[in-house]
């Protein structure tokens, strides 16, 4: 109910709402910084200072055990360790990129598919389905990811394996074999993500002007050409900006890995489901090497930041009407 209720607003927002608003005259110049002061100060203290500090630590051998002052400058040693041949970086980078691409396409694709189904004009009870389908979004990630951890458990009596046995299949060692563990990560991630894309997709679909379809009908356009020429372009317009942010988010997504498989299966160096972000995280405490973790994190940051800047330039999504 609520989403269909909200969609006219979304529809109104479809024209370039943000970009046409012209900034006020220059007399407001100075007071702007008053409004911005809190966020500037907190960004300096809680984001930029840690950033610089981390960058600095990535050139040292700082160690949590040394605590304060007992560390020294080691130059590029940590970065050499990161990129060392035979190390974790390249295999983990490979899976990180694969994970990012697959999970983004699957999450967005399934969300859009459900939105298309829900948008069928003959489906009068669509709000029932929509409400049920949106539930994974409404539940707290931190608790439900632990539930998924229980479901994708290796034991033969774990919920999923019990079902598999019931329908005559063999139980699966979900976190001990590479392919099942990767499947589990992708499946759990899909579960958490599809409701958002379904909602956005449905809003975008309902914002498509009816007359477009009527014109298409007059032209005798079939189902396929209606979809290809009207529905799909509209969906794409709504989703394109989200695809990039979703991909960037997933590249960085350490939480789902740490909480679901903790990188398993694999060695102490790295696991088959480890992403660069989860590897960096595990380096802090499991390997007791925060300065190496800092180097990892900084490399991840450079990848993401260049990704974002290229995206911003290409799509001009951050540009204002000058």
């Amino acid at each position: 109910m609520s989403v269909t209720g909200a969609s006219p607003t979304v529809g109104q927002a479809l024209p370039p709402v943000g970009s046409t608003v012209r900034p006020r005259h220059s007399r407001n110049n100075r007071s702007a910084y008053l409004y911005l002061a809190p966020i500037i100060i907190s960004a300096l203290v809680f984001t930029i200072a840690p950033f610089i500090l981390t960058l600095y630590y990535s050139f040292t051998n700082w160690d949590l055990r040394f605590r304060r002052f007992n560390y020294s400058w080691v130059g590029l040693d940590n970065y050499r360790d990161v990129f060392a041949t035979g190390g974790a970086f390249y295999p983990v980078l490979g899976w990180t990129v694969a994970f990012m691409v697959i999970t983004t396409l699957v999450n967005v694709g399934v969300g859009m598919f459900l939105a298309l189904l829900l948008n069928h004009p003959g489906l009068r009870e669509r709000n029932v389905y929509r409400t049920l389908l949106i539930i994974p979004w409404a539940l707290p990630f931190i608790l439900l990811i632990q539930v998924w951890g229980g479901i994708f458990n290796d034991q033969a009596t774990s919920p999923l394996n019990a079902i598999l046995t019931d329908i005559g299949l063999n139980p699966v060692a979900w976190t001990s074999e590479v392919a099942p563990a990767r499947f589990a990560v992708l499946a759990a991630n899909l579960w958490f993500s599809y409701p958002f894309f379904m909602t956005v997709g449905l809003a975008a679909l309902q914002a498509i002007p009816r007359d477009l379809y009527e014109v298409a009908d007059l032209d005798g356009a079939g189902w396929l050409s209606r979809f290809r020429d009207i529905t799909f372009p509209f969906l794409l317009t709504a989703v394109m900006p989200l695809l990039i942010t979703q991909a960037a988010f997933q590249f960085n997504n350490a939480g789902i890995i740490i909480l679901l498989t903790n990188g398993r299966p694999g060695t102490t160096t790295y696991g088959a489901t480890d992403t660069l972000a989860s590897l960096a995280y595990k380096t802090i405490f499991e390997k007791q090497d925060p300065s190496l973790a800092a180097a990892y994190g900084f490399v991840v940051f450079l990848i993401i930041a260049s990704f974002t800047i290229v995206n911003a330039v290409v799509t001009r999504s951050f540009e204002e009407a000058a």
Partner: peptide
Amino acid sequence: RLRFRGRRYGILLLLIIQMLPGTLNVVA
């Protein structure tokens, strides 16, 4: 609503800075 120096790229800068993985910041 207001016009000031740095308005255009201010948000972009904020968003990029925030792309630091939390795993990176946590050390600091």
